[in-house]
Simulated assay, not measured.
Amino acid sequence: MPDRRSRRATVLFHEVAERQLAEMDDADLARLDPHLDTIALDPKNAGVQTRPDSPVRDYAKDGVRIAFVPTVLGTIVLVAYVEVR
């Protein structure tokens, strides 16, 4: 049987999140990166849905918070907000 690797979602950043990333130092970006990887691997199950009628999911772990919207097929993730404390 062929070795099937999990497909990762493409992560795109809203302009607000891009501005937040631009203000982060290298240490904060290094802390953020593994969490973005987690979301990209399983966007439909990462984090919690903010409201039952909203597609926005909120991921918070180890001082990192990411608000994002996965596409229906889970192939693209739009990151709307990032925070590293």
Rank of each mutant, 00 (worst) to 15 (best):
Asp26Ile: 13
Met1Trp: 09
Pro34Gln: 09
Ile66Ser: 06
Ala30Cys: 10
His35Trp: 06
Asp33Gln: 13
Leu29Phe: 13
Ala80Asn: 12
Ala17Asn: 03
Val48Trp: 05
Asp53Trp: 03
Val82His: 01
His14Ser: 12
Asp33Met: 13
Pro34Val: 10
Val84Trp: 04
Pro52Ile: 01
Leu73Met: 14
Ser6His: 15
Met1Glu: 11
Asp28Leu: 09
Ala9Ile: 06
Asp25Leu: 08
Lys61Asp: 12
Arg57Glu: 04
Leu36Asp: 08
Ala67Cys: 13
Arg57Phe: 00
Asp37Ser: 13
Gly63Cys: 01
Val72Ile: 14
Pro55Leu: 03
Ala9Cys: 09
Met1Lys: 11
Asp3Cys: 13
Val56Ile: 06
Pro52Asn: 00
Ala40Asp: 05
Arg31Ser: 13
Leu12Cys: 13
Glu18Pro: 02
Thr71Met: 01
Leu12Asp: 10
Pro43Val: 01
Asp58Arg: 08
Thr75Ala: 10
Ala22Trp: 04
Leu29Asn: 12
Arg8Tyr: 14
Ser54Cys: 00
Val56Pro: 00
Arg19Phe: 08
Pro55Ala: 02
Gln20Trp: 03
Val84Thr: 04
Pro43Leu: 00
Glu15Ile: 11
Arg19Thr: 11
Leu36Ser: 08
Thr75Pro: 04
Arg51Glu: 00
Ile39Lys: 04
Arg5Ile: 12
Gly47Trp: 01
Leu36Glu: 07
Asp26Ser: 15
Tyr59Cys: 08
Glu15Phe: 12
Leu36Cys: 10
Val77His: 00
Leu21Arg: 05
Val64Met: 05
Asp25Glu: 10
Lys44Cys: 07
Phe13Pro: 01
Asp42Gln: 05
Gly63Asp: 02
Val56Gln: 01
Leu36Met: 12
Arg4Ala: 14
Leu41Asp: 10
Leu21Phe: 04
Phe13Thr: 04
Leu32Glu: 07
Arg65Pro: 03
Asp37Thr: 14
Arg19Glu: 15
Ala17Asp: 03
Leu78Tyr: 06
Leu73Trp: 15
Val79Glu: 03
Arg4Phe: 15
Asp53Val: 03
Gln49Thr: 00
Val48Thr: 08
His14Glu: 11
Glu18Val: 05
Gly74Cys: 01
Asp26Gly: 12
Lys61Pro: 03
Leu41Trp: 07
Gln20Lys: 07
Ala46Leu: 01
Leu32Asp: 07
Val77Tyr: 02
Leu41Arg: 12
Val69His: 02
Ser54Thr: 00
Leu78Met: 10
Val48Arg: 09
Phe13Gly: 04
Ala27Ile: 14
Arg51Ile: 01
